[in-house]
Design a protein around this nucleic acid. Structure first.
Length: 214
DNA sequence: CCCCAGGCCGCGC
DNA sequence: GCGCGGCATGGG
């Protein structure tokens, strides 16, 4: 099967996803997406929410206020998100990047290459920022995507990030990248977990790992 | 108690 | 260019 079929099956099974809504009063609201993209690195989203709430509480809701904030205080705020020493530095770096572009409005035109040249921003974080905060579709390849493709037999496991990204982008329209990724996350949390729960999985019949004897 | 979670960096090879 | 250890918290 092709990745495009995965989209069709998951879309039919779960319906439209509402993903990565910026609910706090960050300015602009997409700045919250950028902060969340950094904070969620290798961490459960639930922990990120606590850190974002702390920031909203202290009104650290735009890149300028983050730049002005003492680094130790910032670390304390984002502590629940884990790896807080690294992440505080990474947040500062992204805030500097926004400032260097003359504000968030201009920042949204940033190149992927420039994002990747920023310490603390790897391919997944860069694509999440481009796609969800800058409105410029770029498929996000995460742990869930790799695990799903692997179990479906569509990748061996040693393919590079860029290879998988290109593969996913070539089978749906750019306008569907965000939705596709959101569906994969939803599916991976419901069924295709680290320890798979295959009962009721909409992809079971097409999956190499699943029990297709129904 | 254990393992896990929407990565990335710096290092050795 | 690829594999590995380190980074840290909160939930199951």
């Amino acid at each position: 099967m092709q990745p495009g079929e995965i989209y069709d099956v998951l879309s039919e099974a779960y319906g439209p996803q509402e993903w990565w809504p910026a609910k706090r009063n960050f300015r602009p609201k997409d700045w919250e997406v950028v902060v969340g993209a950094v904070l969620t690195q290798n961490v459960n989203w639930n922990n990120v929410e606590k850190a974002l709430d702390n920031m909203a509480m202290k009104r650290i809701t735009d890149h300028r206020s983050m730049l002005k904030m003492n680094i130790a205080a910032l670390k304390k705020l984002i502590r629940p998100a884990g790896f807080y020493n690294q992440k505080a530095e990474r947040l500062k770096a992204v805030a500097e990047l926004v400032e260097a572009h003359g504000g968030f409005r201009n920042f949204t035109g940033i190149t992927r290459k420039e994002l990747l040249a920023t310490k603390g921003i790897g391919p997944e974080t860069a694509d999440a920022i481009l796609s969800y905060a800058c409105g410029r579709p770029s498929f996000v390849v995460d742990l869930y995507t790799r695990r799903l493709l692997s179990r479906l037999g569509l990748v061996q496991g040693n393919e590079s990030y860029e290879t998988i990204k290109s593969s996913m982008e070539s089978c749906v329209n750019p306008g569907l990248y965000n939705e596709f990724h959101a569906l994969i996350v939803e599916h991976s949390k419901r069924f295709c977990r680290k320890l798979p729960r295959c009962a009721g999985c909409p992809l079971q019949k097409r999956c190499l790992s699943g029990d297709a004897s129904d």
